[in-house]
């Protein structure tokens, strides 16, 4: 662990990313305490520019809602969607990839065809169709994002498992009579974990982008204040109140940037091949 942190710390960008993410996380946690009122409450006259009134440092939107409060509550939604949809995508992708890689043959063929099939459908368009069917709520937005983002996980895991399954320790476990399931869970997957973790951190970033795009198109949950929603709602007043689109955009960029930087840091710290390169 210490060694891991040491290697991670070598990447300055990764440390910056961690700091930014910690701040976003702090906003998300503090939101209900700092802004106990709903971010939807109409508190002042509409279109108050930033820095013109005490207590409303970022001004108000088209309905007189506190932009700063929206930003804080939006952090909760972005992080939640990013994390949960990634977990769901991993839950779909890891088993498929592991089974395909471990058993090979027909199973591999079928599962990879299935994966390939999903990769051929334009993912954003598929997400839109899925939300048209389900009609957007937070749970379905998460599900739609997960459904379009699991194939890379499956491919990655398959590749890792494929390269691991003929290693000595796996063969030894087979000889000692462990069941296939036990071998996959106890021997193979733990060793395939590092690249999965790296991929997952990047997937959280992508999921946040995807959620904001969907909300921007009006396909988000209308009952949660999200950054993408804020931009989409401010779009019609872009010319008269540009800051309403600008501010939440910056929040998305920072958060996604932070996650990408962290992903790189994790990659440096976990991926042995690259580690060799560093030396």
């Amino acid at each position: 662990m210490k060694a891991f942190w040491f290697r991670y710390r070598q990447n300055r960008g990764a440390v910056i990313g961690l700091v930014i993410l910690a701040l976003v996380l702090l906003c998300a946690v503090a939101a209900p305490f700092l802004f106990p009122r709903s971010p939807w409450s109409m508190v002042q006259r509409p279109f108050l520019p930033p820095f013109t009134m005490d207590g409303l440092p970022l001004g108000t939107d088209a309905l007189g809602r506190d932009v700063l409060s929206g930003l804080f509550h939006g952090a909760r939604v972005s992080l939640l969607v990013g994390l949960v949809s990634t977990v769901v995508a991993l839950a779909i992708g890891i088993p498929i990839g592991a089974l395909a890689g471990y058993y090979g043959g027909l199973a591999d063929d079928m599962l990879m065809r299935f994966t390939e099939f999903f990769q051929t459908i334009p993912s954003f368009a598929l997400a839109i169709v899925l939300l048209a069917i389900f009609q957007p709520s937070l749970a379905y937005v998460i599900l739609a994002i997960a459904i379009v983002s699991w194939p890379p996980v499956a491919r990655l895991v398959r590749g890792e498992v494929l390269s691991l399954r003929h290693r000595e320790f796996v063969e030894a476990a087979t000889l000692s009579g462990q069941s296939n399931l036990a071998i996959i869970l106890k021997q193979v997957l733990p060793n395939a974990l590092p690249p999965i973790i790296v991929l997952a951190s990047l997937m959280v970033a992508t999921a946040i982008l995807l959620e904001s795009s969907l909300s921007f198109l009006g396909l988000g949950d209308p009952n949660v204040m999200s950054w993408g929603y804020m931009i989409g709602a401010a779009r019609t007043v872009l010319r008269t109140a540009w800051w309403l689109s600008f501010i939440p955009g910056i929040a998305i960029v920072l958060t996604v940037l932070a996650l990408n930087l962290i992903g790189e840091g994790l990659n440096d710290a976990l991926n042995p091949r690259l580690r060799r390169r560093q030396s």
Binding site: G13, F216, L238, W242, G249, I252, L254, V256, L257, N260
Partner: peptide, 21 residues
């Protein structure tokens, strides 16, 4: 990295605001 982290629709909005408006 920054390009990579920027939402497409947001850049589009900002670009049209800056270069067009």
């Amino acid at each position: 990295l920054i390009f990579y982290a920027t939402p497409l629709f947001w850049v589009a909005l900002m670009a049209s605001l800056l270069f067009s408006v």
